[in-house]
């Protein structure tokens, strides 16, 4: 009798423990690693984050301000007008300070960047890594926000950033023509809003960090304030702020052609 009871108890524990262990193990596996689960893939997260920025800018006109800080003091202010057709067609014109007024930066294709200098009335082809108005931003940081075209993402985990849950993505360049070898990208879990990017060189050195946040409801949750910090020079920062936003703007066909730069 005692043996029977003992057998039943042992069997009961086995019956509970085995499924419990299996269930708990299954539950602990990250959702995105299970095929067919509802969790987003790394690419989906990246695409959603790109959409936050890119889709809102598509066919828009924005005015922005670049504040260049050194030793935590404002050194220079630039103000620019940005005509944005899509990810690869953007025209930026400097409107302040007066000594740089009229300078234009054009992206006329994926890797096709031009600088127009009004004092000599000339457009010259430039590299995408050229700095934008002598700030810590390169042309591609500002003019090409869609990272999914250039990088392959992987989920490196989740972290808390600015008090909110965020996906941590590791983006590897598809080829060496990309301006950075690797980008660590934090994207807010709740709405896929971009929060932070750490940029790495091809020698795997951390180069700079971009922090982003949205402060204005009028821009559909799009990040409108950006802080670029240099890892090499600790006291060096550039703040970029969108000051105004005009959606649904239709541009003339040749607005984003290098030949048109000298016309207007």
């Amino acid at each position: 009798m005692k043996r029977v009871w003992l057998f039943r108890t042992t069997a009961a524990i086995r019956l509970i423990a085995v499924p419990l262990a299996v269930a708990m193990t299954v539950l602990a596996v990250p959702r995105e690693s299970i095929a067919g689960e509802a969790g987003p893939t790394a690419l989906q997260i990246l695409e959603r984050a790109d959409d936050h920025w890119d889709l809102n800018l598509k066919n828009s006109k924005v005015e922005l301000e670049l504040l260049v800080y050194r030793e935590n003091k404002l050194r220079t202010t630039y103000r620019m007008s940005l005509k944005y057709q899509d990810n690869y067609h953007v025209l930026a014109e400097t409107i302040y300070p007066p000594r740089n007024e009229g300078e234009k930066m054009l992206q006329a294709g994926r890797k096709n960047f031009w600088l127009y200098l009004p004092n000599i009335n000339k457009a010259v082809k430039i590299s995408e890594s050229n700095s934008l108005s002598n700030s810590d931003f390169s042309n591609t940081d500002l003019l090409s926000p869609r990272l999914s075209h250039e990088y392959v993402p992987n989920i490196a985990g989740t972290e808390k950033l600015f008090g909110t849950e965020a996906y941590k993505l590791e983006l590897q360049a598809k080829d060496e023509s990309s301006p950075y070898a690797k980008i660590i990208y934090w994207v807010r879990k709740s709405d896929y809003s971009p929060l932070r990017r750490d940029y790495y060189t091809f020698s795997q050195q951390l180069l700079k960090r971009l922090d982003m946040k949205s402060t204005s409801r009028s821009m559909n949750g799009m990040p409108d304030t950006f802080v670029m910090s240099s890892v090499l020079e600790k006291d060096k920062k550039t703040v970029l702020r969108y000051l105004s936003y005009q959606p649904n703007v239709t541009y003339k066909q040749d607005t984003f052609s290098s030949d048109a730069l000298m016309r207007r």
Binding site: V29, G157, T158
Partner: peptide, 10 residues
Amino acid sequence: LPISSEAQAE
């Protein structure tokens, strides 16, 4: 317990 890097980070 956290076995993924995701949870470790958390």
